[in-house]
Deep mutational scan, measured.
Amino acid sequence: SKDTIRINGIDIDVKDLHEEWKRLVEEALKRGDEELAIELLERALKE
């Protein structure tokens, strides 16, 4: 798994994120759902 995830052309540092969150965000991006990916990231970062 990578340490960054690219959303809207912005590389976001996710190395401190739990693997499960990372996977969910990557799944959302694979489906092209950037809005969901951002929402998941925000939730993950609050934890």
Results as ranks from 00 to 15, higher is better:
Asp16Arg: 07
Asp16Met: 12
Thr4Pro: 07
Ile12Gly: 01
Glu26Lys: 15
Glu35Gln: 14
Asp3Val: 06
Ala37Lys: 00
Lys30Leu: 13
Asp11Ser: 06
Asp3Thr: 06
Ala44His: 05
Ala37Leu: 06
Asp13Leu: 07
Glu42Ser: 08
Glu27Ala: 11
Glu19Asp: 13
Asn8Trp: 02
Ser1Cys: 04
Lys22Asn: 03
His18Val: 08
Lys30Pro: 00
Lys2Gly: 15
Glu35Met: 13
Glu27Asp: 13
Leu45Arg: 13
Leu24Arg: 08
Lys30Ala: 15
Asp11Asn: 06
Lys46Leu: 15
His18Arg: 13
Leu41His: 02
Gly32Asp: 05
Asn8Gln: 08
Leu45Thr: 07
Asn8Arg: 05
Arg31Lys: 12
Leu36Gln: 11
Glu39Ala: 14
Arg6Asn: 14
Lys22Ile: 15
Ile7Trp: 04
Lys15Gly: 13
Arg43Gln: 15
Glu27Leu: 09
Glu39Ile: 14
Ile5Lys: 01
Ala44Asp: 01
Gly9Tyr: 03
Ile38Asp: 03
Lys2Arg: 10
Gly32Leu: 04
Ala28Lys: 00
Arg6Gln: 12
Lys15Met: 07
His18Gly: 15
Glu39Gln: 14
Ser1Thr: 13
Leu40Asn: 00
Glu34His: 12
Leu17Asp: 01
Thr4Tyr: 08
Ile5His: 03
Asp33Arg: 04
Ile10Pro: 01
Lys30Ile: 12
Leu17Ser: 01
Val25Ala: 03
Val14Asp: 01
Asn8Tyr: 03
Glu26Asn: 15
Leu45Glu: 08
Asp13Val: 09
Ala37His: 00
Glu39Thr: 11
Glu47Pro: 06
Thr4Gln: 06
Ala28His: 03
His18Ile: 08
Val14Leu: 10
Asp11Pro: 06
Ile38Ala: 10
Glu42Ile: 07
Ala37Cys: 02
Glu34Gln: 13
Leu40Asp: 01
Asp16Ile: 07
Asp16Trp: 15
Asp3Ala: 04
Trp21Lys: 03
Lys22His: 06
Glu42Cys: 05
Leu40Val: 04
Leu40Ile: 13
Leu45Gln: 11
Asp16Gly: 15
Leu29Met: 09
Val25Gln: 00
Arg43Lys: 13
Asp33His: 08
Glu42Gly: 06
Ile10Lys: 10
Glu34Ser: 12
Lys15Pro: 04
Arg31His: 12
Lys2Ala: 15
Ile7Pro: 02
Lys30Arg: 14
Glu47Asn: 08
Asp11Gln: 05
Glu34Ile: 13
Ile12Tyr: 15
Arg6Lys: 14
Val25Asp: 00
Glu20Gly: 11
Lys46Cys: 08
Leu41Asn: 00
Glu35Ala: 14
Asp33Cys: 08
Arg31Cys: 07
Leu45Trp: 14
Arg23Phe: 11
Arg6Cys: 05
Glu34Gly: 06
Gly9Arg: 02
Ile5Met: 05
Thr4Met: 07
Lys30Thr: 12
Leu45Asn: 12
Trp21Phe: 09
Arg31Val: 11
Asp33Trp: 07
Leu17Pro: 00
Ala37Glu: 00
Val25Glu: 00
Val25His: 00
Glu42Met: 09
Leu29Tyr: 05
Gly9Cys: 04
Glu42His: 10
Lys30Gly: 12
Asp16Pro: 05
Ile5Asn: 02
Glu34Tyr: 07
Leu29Asn: 01
Lys22Leu: 15
Arg6Trp: 08
Glu42Gln: 11
Asn8Phe: 04
Trp21Val: 15
Ile7Arg: 00
Gly9His: 04
Glu19Cys: 04
Leu40Cys: 03
Arg6Leu: 09
Asn8Ala: 07
Lys30Glu: 13
Asp11Leu: 09
Leu17Val: 09
Asp11Trp: 07
Lys15His: 12
Gly32Gln: 05
Lys15Gln: 10
Glu19Gly: 08
Glu42Pro: 00
Glu47Tyr: 07
Ile5Gly: 01
Leu40Trp: 05
Leu41Arg: 01
Lys15Tyr: 08
Val14Glu: 02
Glu42Val: 06
Thr4Gly: 02
Ile12Ser: 01
Trp21Asn: 04
Glu39Val: 13
Lys46Asn: 11
Glu35Arg: 15
Lys46Ile: 11
Gly9Thr: 01
Arg31Thr: 10
Lys22Met: 10
Glu26Pro: 00
Lys15Thr: 15
Ile10Val: 14
Leu41Met: 06
Lys30His: 12
Glu34Pro: 11
Lys46Ser: 14
Asp33Pro: 01
Ala44Phe: 14
Arg23Val: 10
Asp16Leu: 11
Trp21Tyr: 11
Asp33Leu: 08
Leu36Val: 07
Ala44Trp: 13
Leu36Glu: 09
Glu26Cys: 08
Glu34Thr: 14
Ile7Lys: 01
Ile38Tyr: 12
Glu26Trp: 15
Asp13Pro: 06
Asp11Met: 07
Glu42Arg: 12
Glu26Gly: 09
His18Glu: 12
Asn8Glu: 05
Thr4Ser: 08
Asp16Gln: 10
Arg43His: 13
Ile5Pro: 01
Arg31Ala: 15
Glu39Cys: 12
Glu26Ile: 15
His18Pro: 14
Leu17Ile: 12
Leu29Ile: 11
Asp3Pro: 05
Glu47Val: 08
Leu36Ile: 05
Val14Gln: 02
Gly9Met: 03
Leu24Trp: 06
Glu42Tyr: 07
Lys2Gln: 15
Thr4Arg: 03
Asp33Val: 02
Glu26Phe: 15
Glu39Arg: 13
Ile7Ser: 01
Lys15Ile: 06
Glu47Thr: 07
Ile10Gly: 03
Lys22Gln: 07
Glu19Tyr: 12
Lys22Gly: 05
Glu19Val: 12
Ile5Ser: 01
Glu20Gln: 11
Leu36Phe: 09
Val14Ala: 04
Gly32Tyr: 04
Glu35Phe: 10
Ile38Pro: 00
Arg43Val: 11
Ser1His: 10
Leu24Asn: 03
Leu40Ala: 02
Leu17Trp: 06
Gly32Asn: 07
Ile38Met: 15
Ala44Leu: 07
Leu40His: 03
Glu20Lys: 13
Glu19Ser: 12
Lys46Trp: 10
Leu24Val: 07
Gly32Phe: 05
Asp13Ala: 06
Arg43Trp: 10
Ser1Glu: 14
Glu19Asn: 09
Glu35His: 12
Asp16Lys: 09
Glu47Trp: 05
Leu41Tyr: 09
Glu34Leu: 10
Arg6Tyr: 08
Asp11Ile: 08
Ala44Arg: 01
Glu20Asp: 13
Lys15Arg: 14
Ile12Phe: 15
Leu40Arg: 02
Ala28Gly: 00
Glu39Tyr: 11
Ala37Asn: 00
Leu29Trp: 05
Glu20Phe: 13
Asp11Arg: 03
Asn8Lys: 06
Val25Cys: 02
Arg43Thr: 12
Ala28Glu: 00
Leu41Thr: 04
Asp11Ala: 07
Asp3Met: 01
Ile38Gly: 08
Glu47Arg: 00
Ile12Cys: 03
Ala44Gln: 03
Glu27Pro: 00
Leu45Asp: 07
